[in-house]
Write a protein that binds this DNA or RNA. Structure first.
Lengths: 206, 206
DNA sequence: TGACACATACCAACCGTATGGTATGTTTTC
DNA sequence: GAAAACATACCATACGGTTGGTATGTGTCA
């Protein structure tokens, strides 16, 4: 519920700006190393505004995760990989798309919820659960195409669409970890090439 | 350089105990959320001992990473997956072994350097570099078997042994991220099944 | 329609504590 | 007795969070 004023049109944006700051700073520094002051400084608001919108730093973490889930859902929904009429083509286009958007600074293309989950999984269950909703909500959007491709082509194997959808995320997240360790985005792209090859193998296409 | 005493045989172990505490606590809470006092308490030593052995908390981070690299190197060197005479069998045995050791609490089977790299990659380059040495030092031990399997069997493809070795680590690390997010070790094991299937596909075996 | 009651959005200053780190003293071994 | 291996006591600051307050908007009823 932003309420801009005639005098100060910035007013009403504090919450959103804090969420954007959280998205960017936490991906670079991690959650624990990001202070409330860091966020306020980046969002150009005071601490009073912070604690007006969020009951605690942890609550900001949950809100930032949910904000990430919403924005990424919209982003992927609008992405071009849904275009092909063939389900398998859409799945492969998804993998290609994920590879194509690995560009620029590491903090810019890596995943907030992967970072957060890895860091706070045991200390802050609320954040962990929000991360799970984001990740597995996304896998759910992939599952339909994978299952359609599988039944269309009469593929039988000891794997499920659900499991393969999750595996795509594991490969992506793992690629991010290696890219961070090696300080090289190519390490993340490389694993997506293997994933592409794996899926083609599963569906007997080249 | 431990120096145990006749009176107090605990003495001389402070450094090692701090490293063990770091290994366990950082995997559960993350690096930034782990305080020096946490580590001293767990290792049952004082702050004086901590800063006698480590110049700073960051230096402890580097040392803990190196300690992790050494101990895991020994652990994997002694593991049974080296037994098969066939290189491909060894590679598949490695994947099976990695799956088999995913047991118990999440903090106990997940990887210190993956967690650390994800958290401090941009804030503390020395730790990030130590993580890279650990991870890519490990992939180097896999490369020989993969390459031997590939040339033995005359496998040609647009992938290298080096790249596949790295991909195994990406899948493992990504599995850990999903296991943490979903609070379920089975999510990590599941991705190793996909990795096993992928490698068999690459080598045309069932 | 206007003014009263109330809610929202935000700010500046402050508080108690936990933190990383230091300075100095004591014990133990070679 | 020198030096390593600790322990004790302490410091400065950064941290998450609180407080009291102001400005601005909105619902409502005479």
């Amino acid at each position: 519920m932003p309420r801009p004023t005639k005098q100060s049109p910035e007013r009403g944006n504090a919450r959103l700006r804090l969420l954007e700051a959280a998205r960017d700073i936490i991906r670079a520094k991690g959650f624990a190393a990001t202070s409330v002051d860091d966020l306020c400084r980046a969002a150009d608001v005071t601490k009073g505004a912070f604690f007006h919108h969020f009951a605690s730093k942890d609550a900001l973490g949950v809100a930032a995760t949910e904000y990430w889930a919403e924005t990424t859902t919209e982003f992927f929904a609008a992405a071009p990989y849904h275009a092909p009429p063939d389900p398998l083509a859409r799945v492969l286009a998804y993998v290609a798309f994920r590879k194509a958007i690995i560009l620029g600074e590491i903090a810019e293309f890596t995943c907030l919820v992967g970072t957060l989950a890895q860091e706070v999984y045991s200390s802050t269950p609320e954040i962990r659960e929000a991360c799970a909703r984001s990740i597995f909500g996304h896998t759910a959007t992939l599952e339909a195409d994978i299952e359609a491709a599988r039944s269309d082509r009469g593929i039988a194997g000891d794997w499920t669409a659900e499991s393969l959808a999750r595996h795509t995320q594991a490969v992506i997240q793992g690629g991010f970890v290696l890219a961070k360790a090696g300080n090289d985005p190519a390490l993340a792209r490389e694993s997506l090439d293997h994933l592409d090859r794996y899926i083609r193998h599963l569906f007997h296409v080249t």
